[in-house]
């Protein structure tokens, strides 16, 4: 491990890329989260309807139906065959996330993400212990449990507890109980389990992770040769188990982060002072490996910045 590891996380990136440059994707993500919320709020607040409904099911501009595929799946498991509108909506959303990376939902849309991000920020500030760390696979088990419970009870079981839709519904329809749910998730992540909710338990994230296994949009580490082992990307990545295969892969292996758990949040891109990572498509296996000279790397880097 290099001496860089002693520096605070993100320090180098801040030095080399500046305040905006070192949190480009973070700012974009917050903007995107606000944007998706705003789509639903212009109606109730200003009487100008863009998207009606909630993340579970909506109608945009009076013609585009969308529905959450996991909610739809639970409904089908519960024995209700949805009518065409909701099925179409669920398929459209499914297709979008197959292209954009399933868990892009988590990083770019989900209203719980700012809550767990805030909890994690606070967690780091207070330097709290990790706490309970169930296996990452726990969420897949929970996903199976949720579908089984829907089947067994004949209800859309997860929607009784689901913080994601509950908070969104609360924000859009002005239900006050949403704040309880926000507080519960925040406190859980802060004091009980570091990155516990989104990283280990949430069955919605698990579902989108499964969809995202084949997604087209991916993060790659084409300049992994330039990595100076500062470990900052591991520190900021909410699913840091996905990085190693791409970053530390032996020569010849793909630099693409292929794991469905990757949320396409871009935090690794932001934090890396060496500009190792970038967004690309899943078939782009290009590498800027040595012995390609420093010059080539520089031009690649400047190209990336122009994009």
């Amino acid at each position: 491990m290099s001496t860089h590891a002693q520096l605070p996380v993100g320090f180098e990136a801040l030095e080399t890329k500046g305040w905006i440059g070192s949190r480009r994707y973070l700012l974009l993500r917050r903007a995107s989260q606000l944007f998706f919320l705003a789509l639903f709020l212009t109606g109730p607040l200003f009487g100008f309807w863009i998207a009606k409904g909630t993340l579970a099911g909506s109608l945009t501009l009076d013609f585009l139906p969308l529905a959450d595929p996991l909610v739809a799946l639970q409904s089908i498991a519960a024995g209700h065959w949805l009518t065409a509108t909701a099925l179409t909506g669920a398929l459209i959303v499914l297709a979008a996330y197959v292209l954009l990376g399933g868990r892009a939902y988590c990083a770019w849309v989900c209203p719980i993400n700012p809550v767990t991000d805030a909890a994690h920020w606070m967690h780091r500030r207070l330097d709290l212990p990790k706490g309970w760390q169930p296996k990452r696979s726990a969420r897949y088990w929970l996903l199976g449990t949720v579908l089984t419970a829907s089947f067994a009870s004949g209800t859309i079981a997860w929607e009784i507890l689901n913080p994601v839709t509950m908070v969104h519904r609360g924000l859009v329809f002005g239900l006050s109980a949403a704040w309880l749910v926000v507080a519960a998730v925040f406190l859980f992540d802060l004091f009980v389990s570091r990155r516990g909710w989104c990283g280990h338990l949430c069955p919605v994230g698990a579902f989108y992770g499964l969809i995202g296994k084949t997604s087209i949009l991916r993060v790659s580490a084409p300049k992994r040769a330039a990595c100076d082992d500062c470990m900052d990307c591991y520190a900021v990545c909410p699913e840091n188990q996905v990085i190693s295969p791409a970053l530390k892969g032996s020569p010849g292996t793909s630099p693409i982060i292929l794991a469905g758990d990757c949320t396409n949040c871009g935090a690794c891109i932001d934090v890396c002072a060496q500009d190792v990572f970038r967004f690309t498509h899943r078939f782009d296996r290009r590498l800027a490996e040595p012995p390609s000279q420093f010059a080539a790397e520089q031009s690649a880097a400047s190209l990336m910045h122009k994009e």
């Binding site: 909630t54 579970a56 099911g57 909506s58 909701a86 519904r169 859009v172 239900l175 109980a177 749910v181």
Partner: peptide, 25 residues
Amino acid sequence: LGACIRCGLCVRDCPFDTLKLAELG
């Protein structure tokens, strides 16, 4: 309970504000 996805679209389209979404608890 197996069919309603709790989207609230019915609530939105009721011209008399008759319908409400149930609050947690």
